[in-house]
Amino acid sequence: MSNEYTHPEMLVSTAWVDEHRSDTKNIRIVESDEDVLLYDTGHVPESVKIDWIDDLNDPIVRDYISHERFAALCAKNGIGNDTTVVFYGDKSNWWACYALWVFKLFGHENCRIMDGGRKKWMDENRAVSTEKPTYAQRDYVAQPQDRSIRAFRDEVRHHIERKGQLVDVRSPEEFSGEKTHMPDYPQEGVLRGGHIPGASNVPWSRAVDEDGTFKNRAGLEALYLQEQGLKSDEPMVAYCRIGERSSHTWFVLKYLLGFKNVQNYDGSWTEWGNSVGLPIEK
């Protein structure tokens, strides 16, 4: 079964979600989107919304919410430690993968991505509701952050000194330093354009097919292993601009291709490219 993902259980299909969505005792479906209004226009009927800024990021410090606040967020949405949380969202599950990464950061065990995301669900004309379901409060105990999946600036610095492998998932224009922001996000600029020395450049969206589902294993191996020469048994750091696009690639490398040690550097280019004295390449 050479074409099977390393952790196929991390993905569920739209059909699976449709079949199991009424099992709200054990399963919580979570929509995470870039567009703040999208959930309100209609969503998987049993789903709740978790917003990457309002719910997962601290409003003051550049960091994620505390683990107490994470526990409260889960409890409020009827998520217990044993609940299977299925994430989906717009833009090929970009934000859904980000939410999953944050859930993993706080040690939530059973997380899944609905392959194809919101677009596939809508394209298949499955049930949609504008009602916002509420669920009975659950007790939730959040774990301390799992640092094995999160890289900080100084760790990345040591990583490049050891010639460790990095993947930069931004657009080629950002990677080359021609642009200091993502093509359509002009305000999130940095003082220096370029990339972290030694990084490969694989824009995150190359990991998905036209219909928003992930490429099959052969397609992903062709991209990351053959084309870029990355090695699944060596430590790996993924980054982008603020760590959201790279959480998508982190998911692909860790769960679909089975890279042994992948970290997401959420400080990413907005930290690295603005820091005094850090080396960059153009």
Partner: peptide, 8 residues
């Protein structure tokens, strides 16, 4: 489609 914020 699927961009209600900017449509608003």
């Amino acid at each position: 489609e699927e961009a209600p914020t900017i449509a608003g």
